[in-house]
Simulated assay, not measured.
Amino acid sequence: MTIAIQRTTFSRLTCLTVAGPLWAAVSLAQAATRDGFDLIRHPLSALSNGSLGWLQITNFLVAGVLTIVGATGLRQATSSRWAPRLVLVNGIGMIAAGIFSMDPADGFPTGTPAGIPETMSWHSYGHMAAGSIAFFSLIAACYVLARHFARNGNRRDAALSTIAGTALLLGDGWAMTGGPAGSLTLAVGAITAMLWVAIVASRLR
């Protein structure tokens, strides 16, 4: 690998290293400060609503672009064929989730009636589809990385990859079935998986 290619790969992997922590930090900062937001009841995607909704929309878009760029670096830095592709799909899903925002619901933003709306807008359906694509591709990427590490004899990272993917799988499944505090378990699972991918990218640099 030439020096120029090494530098390009380093830069692209840096994008992937930053994407997850940036999205998590911006989302959690808003969750802690936005009036009326309760992570027990409201998914982080709900932050795309209200007068400050542009912050979360931008957060999705920026993190998505960084993830897409980072996926190309992952392709150059690892022998895994599918992990970079799945991370790429995850980035596309994040961008789509930013473009299609979910509907206000359950008291957020402040002034929104309690409970879930009886009908959903087209862009809310779009957000759900984009979120599903982003989550499932991220789960799959974690499991593919686990297999990749296991083949290379790295049992520790194989186990951590499996844990990260399973955390998101269980968190998303619990939220989709309407389990108590489902938005919280989904947030924990998503951030865990995103941070693990960021750690993998950081090591590959």
Rank of each mutant, 00 (worst) to 15 (best):
L74N: 03
M176F: 11
H123A: 14
R151D: 15
A130K: 01
R205T: 09
A63I: 06
A141M: 03
L184S: 02
G53E: 00
A129Y: 07
D157P: 00
I5N: 12
A105Y: 03
F136D: 07
G111Q: 01
A63L: 03
T8C: 06
S121L: 07
P117M: 09
T119V: 12
W196K: 14
G91A: 07
A46F: 03
Y125Q: 07
A96L: 15
V65S: 02
A19F: 04
R203I: 13
P109E: 04
L195P: 03
T119G: 11
I3E: 15
N152R: 14
A146G: 15
A140T: 15
T177P: 01
R34H: 14
M94K: 10
S101F: 08
T177W: 05
G36Y: 05
A187G: 08
F135T: 08
H123T: 14
Q56E: 11
R12A: 10
P180S: 05
I5H: 13
T119D: 12
A77N: 08
L16G: 10
G107V: 13
G182C: 02
Q30N: 10
A201K: 04
A83C: 01
D103M: 13
T185A: 11
R151W: 01
S124F: 10
A19K: 06
W122N: 13
G165C: 02
H42Y: 11
L16N: 04
W174P: 00
A190G: 11
L138H: 02
L52K: 07
A105W: 03
L168V: 06
P180M: 02
T78Q: 01
A193L: 03
A77W: 07
R34P: 10
V87F: 10
I3H: 15
N59F: 02
A140C: 09
L55P: 00
M120T: 03
A190K: 04
Q56C: 01
T119R: 11
L168H: 06
G178R: 05
A31I: 06
L66H: 00
S11A: 13
P180V: 04
G153W: 07
T185W: 08
M120S: 15
S27K: 00
L169G: 09
F37T: 05
M128P: 01
T185R: 06
P113T: 09
S124E: 05
M176L: 15
S11I: 11
V200D: 05
L195T: 07
I57H: 06
A31H: 01
A4C: 09
T72D: 05
N90R: 04
V144Q: 12
A71T: 03
V144K: 08
I68S: 01
A83S: 09
G20P: 12
I163C: 08
R151A: 15
G131I: 09
R155K: 04
R34C: 13
M102L: 10
A140L: 14
V87W: 10
R81Q: 06
A46D: 08
G189S: 13
N154S: 11
G36E: 08
W174C: 05
A134S: 14
